[in-house]
């Protein structure tokens, strides 16, 4: 992958992971900074312009490695946490909350991977509790793996924590890293899926539905646990037939009995993120305003209808609404 500029925090420039990443990418310009936040956080940056050709920032996460998930966010575990070794994503989904949350579209990679695992080990010290850690909240966990090598490094240590489970949420079909290691019982590869018409209209630069289903098949054949994430359901009530056919297609192409979990979620975004989204994507403002209005009026019905469809294919115990 080519980058115009690589920014490196001064105190991470000698780290092994940083040097390894530099060896895997091409770039024209290297600039040192004191903190990633100097580049990433200032206001009055244009997310859409930066998205055309994002730069990369290599940094060290200093604190808050592991965060609590929102209440009721679960795939069956009582204690749930999330973490992000990366901020931002190579894809350009129109509905993505990251564009409302961040001022910059540059990729930040926190290269101190071991600090994340150490925090997870600490959290998992009570062996009687089963905990779930979600990766891919502020990024796509797999999409930049060929640059970050995060999973390759991280999974080796994670495998040893028997009471901890990891969800790797992704839309990526670059599954080479998962092909190269032995499938792990405590890791769930969770694919975000939507009907192809929604993929084309809303999920720019992402792999097609067909390619994602192919990857799910490959992973299931290898023995990986796979989850399905129908999140966000776009305009479900008005696209009921589209979604019905889509569910039929998905469940006809995969090994349903081996699916770890299925989650659904509607389009949701805090107001301040939403306003920013409208501002930077004015051409899509009508559709997002409609989606927001739908959310208020039809959210409950949508969830119920959708669940009714999904339990035709899977055990309701595996179904979660986030």
């Amino acid at each position: 992958m080519n980058f115009e500029t690589v920014y490196i925090e001064e105190d991470t420039k000698e780290d092994k992971n940083t040097l390894d990443i530099l060896g895997r990418i091409k770039f024209k310009n290297l600039i040192y900074c004191n903190s990633y936040s100097e580049v990433f956080n200032p206001k009055n940056q244009n997310f859409r312009i930066q998205k055309i050709k994002p730069d990369i920032i290599l940094a060290k996460k200093k604190n808050n490695f592991i965060m609590n998930t929102p209440k009721n966010f679960t795939i069956g575990f009582t204690e749930n946490y999330y973490f992000s070794h990366m901020l931002n994503c190579i894809y350009d989904c129109k509905y993505c909350f990251l564009q409302g949350m961040f001022n910059s579209a540059n990729f930040v990679i926190f290269t101190n991977y071991n600090d994340f695992i150490n925090e997870i080990i600490k959290k998992s010290s009570n062996k009687n509790k089963k905990l779930c850690f979600f990766s891919g909240y502020d990024c796509d966990s797999l999409a930049l793996e060929n640059i970050t090598n995060f999973l390759k490094v991280f999974l080796k240590s994670f495998e040893k924590i028997n009471n901890a489970y990891l969800e790797v949420r992704t839309k990526s079909t670059k599954i080479d890293v998962l092909k190269s290691i032995k499938p792990m019982k405590n890791v769930i590869i969770a694919y975000s899926l939507n009907p192809e018409i929604i993929v084309k209209g809303f999920e720019q630069k992402t792999p097609t539905l067909k390619k994602r289903i192919n990857s799910i098949n490959s992973l299931q054949k290898l023995g990986w646990q796979v989850g399905l994430r129908f999140d966000p359901l776009i305009n479900y009530s008005k696209n009921k037939q589209i979604y019905k056919k889509f569910f039929e297609l998905v469940f006809s192409k995969i090994q349903v009995e081996k699916i770890h979990s299925v989650t659904t979620g509607h389009f949701r975004m805090p107001n301040n993120f939403f306003n920013k989204l409208i501002n930077i994507r004015p051409e899509d403002s009508l559709i997002f305003n409609k989606l927001k209005n739908d959310r208020l009026l039809e959210c409950q019905t949508q969830r119920k209808e959708c669940e009714e469809e999904l339990i035709k294919f899977i055990d309701y115990k595996k179904l979660f609404a986030n």
Binding site: E4, Y7, C33, V39, Q45, I52, K53
Partner: peptide, 11 residues
């Protein structure tokens, strides 16, 4: 001692 980083869309 503050820094600012201009953004370049291309080379």
């Amino acid at each position: 001692q503050r820094s600012i980083y201009p953004f370049f869309i291309k080379n």
